[in-house]
Amino acid sequence: MAKNILDWLRNNLRGQSGSCEDCLKILELIVDGEATALQEKQFRDHIEACLPCYESFNLEKSIKKLLQTKLEKKPVPSDLIESIKSRINETAE
């Protein structure tokens, strides 16, 4: 049942096809914070009325968040820092 409602929304809350194309082109600029203020405004206005583009935007954001929060960060081996420092001190003398 939810599936059908979502499909209905996707079909009926769809922006003009031309503007969806433009929208998807600047989607990554928006997600990466590289869009101009004007592009941001146009984008936000569009996704308010276009579910497919809104969903694309959410997907990109969620993947970015996944990368930033769930990827394991390896700790730097402590002997590495010491080794670098001692080599530098040798060079500096």
């Binding site: 969620s62 996944l66 990827l71 394991e72």
Partner: peptide, 17 residues
Amino acid sequence: RVDAVQDMIGDEISNAL
């Protein structure tokens, strides 16, 4: 889907990358 992405674990995203 977004909910699929949110349910993924570190290993999956790490391997994908």
